[in-house]
Design a protein around this nucleic acid. Sequence first.
DNA 1: ACCTCCCGCCATGCT
DNA 2: AGCATGGCGGGAGGT
Length: 868
Amino acid sequence: MENEKENLFCEPHKRGLMKTPLKESTTANIVLAAIQPDFGPLTTPTKPKEGSQGEPWTPTANLKMLISAVSPEIRNRDQKRGLFDNRSGLPEAKDCIHEHLSGDEFEKSQPSRKEKSLGLLCHKFLARYPNYPNPAVNNDICLDEVAEELNVERRRIYDIVNVLESLHMVSRLAKNRYTWHGRHNLNKTLGTLKSVGEENKYAEQIMMIKKKEYEQEFDFIKSYGIEDHIIKSNTGPNGHPDMCFVELPGVEFRAASVNSRKDKSLRVMSQKFVMLFLVSTPQIVSLEVAAKILIGEDHVEDLDKSKFKTKIRRLYDIANVLSSLDLIKKVHVTEERGRKPAFKWTGPEISPNTSGSSPVIPFTPSDLEVRRSSKENCAKNLFSTRGKPNFTRHPSLIKLVKSIESDRRKINSAPSSPIKTNKAAESSQNSAPFPSKMAQLAAICKMQLEEQSSESRQKVKVQLARSGPCKPVAPLDPPANAEMELTAPSLIQPLGVVPLIPSPLSSAVPLILPQAPSGPSYAIYLQPAQAHQSVTPPQGLSPTVCTTHSSKATGSKDSTDATTEKAANDTSKASASTRPGSLLPAPERQGAKSRTREPAGERGSKRASVLEDSGSKKKFKEDLKGLENVSTTLFPSGYLIPLTQCSSLGAESILSSKENSGALSPNHRIYSSPIAGVIPVTSSELTAVNFPSFHVTPLKLMVSPTSVAAVPVGNGPALTSSHPVPIQNPSSAIVNFTLQHLGLISPSVQMSASPGPGIVPVSPRIESVNVVPENAGTQQGRATNYDSPIPGQSQPNGQSVAVTGAQQPVPVTPKGSQLVAESFFRTPGGPTKPTSSSCMDFEGVNKTSFGTLFVPQRKLEVSTEDVH
DNA sequence: ACCTCCCGCCATGCT
DNA sequence: AGCATGGCGGGAGGT
């Protein structure tokens, strides 16, 4: 039904694969090519497999072949893991072997659980799609097909897809079908998740748990009550945890439709898990803590073992997928008690999307109000959080939502989902609006680029190796605008941290607030890349982290106790209590109060960003905070929808609406320029078009307002600058642009898509980054990414890559769209240079700014184990 | 012995 | 009823 169109696109694959594997090859290849240009060339090997087809294995083998061919990186990883043997061994070989071998042997050949691990499977899965798919192309994913190709049960695919869906890297189109979005929206999503996480006070929760642990160890002390409160608070009134799925705007509804189980779903768990990383200072989260928090939301104490165990199991599943995405890495945290498995965030640093964040914006009052309201709504729907409590969904809401969803579903899904289809077809969320021409052009360019990139990949790899060190970060881009700079810093740095990178990031962030200095509390410091040392305080408790690798050690982590505190700081509450630490920085002071208040510092950045400005208004802020933070909009469904994708739909529509309203003229201006005419036009056009759709969906409508509100201004300048930066995909750029305008996204986010860029603007993250030397490893990864713009590369952070490019590109050229476009497209070149420069800058900045912060915490040792 | 986590049963809910 | 999803936890491979 729905699929009709889709089928057309997809079908081939499926058919081929499913029914006749052999035959399909052709089609499959084609498809692949379309989807993943990168592979295309490489793909060749594939056919052979097919040829072999007779064997059941074929599909798998093909994949493997492809994978290996395509992404050496993957291979390497595997090897690292040790998987390599199996995997890399080409399937074909295996097959042959199998034939020859006796049963036992046969078994041996296949085996290993490792080979079957979700992580590996995920890598294979990811290898099939580009990090930054061309929207113009059909990026549909047929689950059955994939399952066959990967030779795994569908159940496994669901595990992967659910996690990817939580990151909005894919969205459900129809029954057996998903659309691949890649990392285009990843930063946005992460920003949103961060915001939500902050709202939910996960940082605090983490702190509490850690405290408890400590206390327990020693003795119990007071914290108890507090903790409970907190937790409870988080929990919805009903006691529901606040789980909700955070959605991106345009995309997700459908998926939602499916979800009855949504709440519990792996998706939600995945998002929450990610939130924990984004919110915690060290960015290291132990499974135990994560499980407790996830469970805890429901009932703190009840954890029965079985429940706990189950949760842990699920977390492993999620972690495996996230690891494959290079967002996290396994480490061990050594506490007094012993060492516990934990994961460290290795993904991009993100600044919360606040869409609205702050007030800085020049909106009209009305806009603001609107925004707020929307946020509030969202908040209610989604998480609870806010002030204190979270919002859980109220039953009434739930019902409402359901009804809405069902309606929505009918409408959307239907298949048609024409809308979707369109989207899908266009793909673009981003560019979407425009008519095809633009999209096509973009697509073509992209394709070309990709091809090039693929070719160059190898080169890139090499580069990567080299580049490693430089993180590029960000860069610096020159800040093109002074304005940007100004804004940016404030935004990002809320924590007190300073923005290391001022310009780049900053630009991004404009809205946020001013927090500033306050941040004090945390000490964040960043270390220059090299130095690294960052101190990262471990989160609360984390005791020692040992990185396996290397570096980390360097750091100063030792400070330990303090570290914990840091974390605590954020939380505020933490501070007071138990923690031995003591060191809390000033921030803590406040903290004590209650979570409610959150001192500025709550989690640092986030909060800071939000409120910051004046301490005075804290309360006010808090309230706002909730709203603000959520850049996303909420839908009744309880999903939080960030705008991301919206761009195509929502955003644009929104924009248009806004425009109509006339609220943000400035933005518009900006808008246009950067993107070059494209956007502007689009928006209007789209608007018209999309609108209707929106109407259809209430949710969307809601969003738009929000988004609008968000729009804030700040972005304007930033945006401009930013645009250039983002090299990524044109589409993404556009999207970002749009979003920014809308206010949904913070510039920073956009900018790099990867945020990270190095940036680290956010203190916490930064820390983590810095801290871990291993990061080096990690970083390298990142670096690599940075270095290599190439999308194709394996998944790992394509984003970062983009970032890199962005940085440099920079050029800021607002003007011509063409120019811009070029920059976008052109990924490759620049990286290097920019990188270096950026790095340099970065470092310099860091040093300057922070050089000192640090906070000691408790000991934290993290050991990363690559291995395992 | 513990850590991971694969496997697949079976509930759930849509079609 | 049938199928798509996906929660869940037994139990096995790894270390």
